[in-house]
């Protein structure tokens, strides 16, 4: 009986590890092929498109890549401005809105929350025609503001922050701060924001990723080449000008991915820890 249990325990253990390792390879392999092929010539890639070892055509590929319309540095800077601004707006104002929904007892609170649930369903794409026409009329195409300011109203983030606040916030802290004479804005900035840090960290990452990866709205709004974001730059690689330059395409893709890799592996501990911290507290 005990032996049987032990055997099944080990079988399960092996299945778990095999699954996890398989999934890990599935994640790494495409990026590995991309990075290695970025250093190989088109001829080498055509001969054998998978190689575990890099070759020596990196500079050659880079020259071909930058000789055409692809400018990764410009795309990177533009995307940083937009995503940074949008993320700051999202986490700060969503926390503020969520706090208003949890801490105060106001007449329209429930209806406002219902409204948030209702507008949570509205995706940007669905309203994009009106949004584009509106921005075109007021001359805001080719500006970054229409891509940053809408982030102030992020219903999904508010929804998530509210869930978090309900489970963590004790109004006693707020009340004792009030007794000490602290103003409401001060309480929010000095006490509530630190309490919400784990939720803010996770949501900031999700907000940043969403904004960074956004292709639809920038593609509609930004027509000036100097304003192109990273995803728009990437989409140029699909065009005819790079059709036969396999090595350069892989290199261009790698250049857009590398900064993300660096940031992700620096922040990943924070993501996982933040998510875990957000949950365990009773």
């Amino acid at each position: 009986m005990n032996k049987k249990k032990r055997a099944s325990y080990y079988i399960w253990k092996i299945i778990k590890y095999i699954t996890c390792i398989f999934l890990a390879i599935l994640t790494i392999l495409p990026f590995w092929i991309m990075l290695v092929n970025a250093t190989r010539s088109t001829y080498e890639i055509q001969q054998n498109s998978i190689s575990l070892l890099p070759s020596k055509y990196f500079m050659n590929n880079l020259q071909i890549l930058l000789g055409k319309s692809f400018n990764p540095l410009k795309g990177f800077i533009n995307s940083m401005i937009i995503s940074g601004g949008a993320t700051a707006c999202t986490v700060y104002f969503s926390s503020l809105t969520a706090y208003a929904l949890v801490a105060y007892d106001w007449k329209l609170r429930q209806s406002f929350f219902t409204l948030i649930l209702a507008v949570m369903m509205i995706p940007a794409q669905v309203t994009s025609i009106g949004f584009y026409q509106f921005m075109y009329r007021i001359g805001m195409t080719n500006s970054f503001l229409p891509l940053i300011l809408p982030a102030i109203a992020a219903p999904i983030t508010v929804f998530f922050m509210r869930q978090y606040l309900i489970s963590t916030l004790s109004l006693d802290i707020v009340n004792s701060a009030r007794i000490d004479g602290a103003g409401e804005f001060h309480i929010f900035n000095r006490i509530i924001i630190p309490i919400m840090k784990p939720a803010i960290a996770t949501q900031a990452i999700f907000a940043f990723v969403a904004s960074w990866n956004n292709l639809f709205l920038p593609l509609i709004l930004l027509t000036d080449k100097d304003k192109y974001t990273m995803p728009i730059m990437v989409s140029l690689l699909r065009g005819d000008i790079y059709k036969t330059e396999f090595g350069s395409v892989y290199l261009g893709l790698s250049l857009t991915v590398l900064p993300l890799f660096v940031v992700y592996f620096l922040l990943s501990k924070y993501i996982i820890a933040g998510v875990a911290l957000g949950g365990v507290k009773e």
């Binding site: 890990a24 991915v257 996982i272």
Partner: peptide, 13 residues
């Protein structure tokens, strides 16, 4: 960390 990684990479890429 690995399983989440593809999500952070630009969909266009």
């Amino acid at each position: 960390v690995l399983f989440y990684m593809p999500n952070i990479i630009t969909a266009a890429t």
